[in-house]
């Protein structure tokens, strides 16, 4: 069943892709093929593959329980927040928070969480910024 839904999503994606391809504006200076043809071929393959998946689905994957699903979702939100906050708070603070969150969710105890978070952040800062000279995001504290 999961595969059927996956195939339907794929089919919708293929149709949307084909529609978006037809909307590409052709420039008057075009070659014999033009910018639309190849995307349309891709959309066709995507669609055919999706139909094949709908017609001949594999066994359903082992879906995680709702709790684990929420876990993955929450991690996604944290990583999105991390991406957004990185330029605001600076590298060290944002990274310490994000890695503390991840290690906590993977089962670290409170004290270990704190140490791992700060350690990861400072470790990367020292190796990548101070030793290797990579430019990392700078926050209000200058780090």
């Amino acid at each position: 069943m999961s595969d059927r839904i996956f195939g339907i999503v794929g089919l919708v994606l293929a149709l949307g892709y084909a529609y978006a391809a037809t909307q590409i504006e052709e420039s008057f200076l075009s070659d014999a093929v033009g910018p639309k043809a190849f995307p349309l071929i891709i959309a066709a393959i995507l669609g055919l593959a999706s139909i094949a998946i709908i017609l001949k689905p594999d066994a359903s994957p082992d879906w995680p329980s709702v709790g684990r699903l929420v876990e993955v979702l929450a991690a996604t939100v944290v990583l999105i927040l991390y991406a957004e906050l990185l330029p605001v708070t600076g590298f060290v603070i944002a990274t310490a928070l994000a890695s503390a969150y991840l290690t906590w969710r993977l089962g670290s105890k409170p004290l270990a969480t704190l140490i791992t978070g700060i350690g990861t952040s400072l470790g990367i800062y020292v190796i990548f910024h101070l030793v290797l000279g990579l430019s990392l995001a700078r926050g209000p504290l200058g780090i």
């Binding site: 990861t120 990548f128 990392l136």
Partner: peptide, 15 residues
Amino acid sequence: PPRILMPIVAMVSFV
């Protein structure tokens, strides 16, 4: 343990 390793992997990817 992965609980230490995986955050490092994620953060190094971002860096």
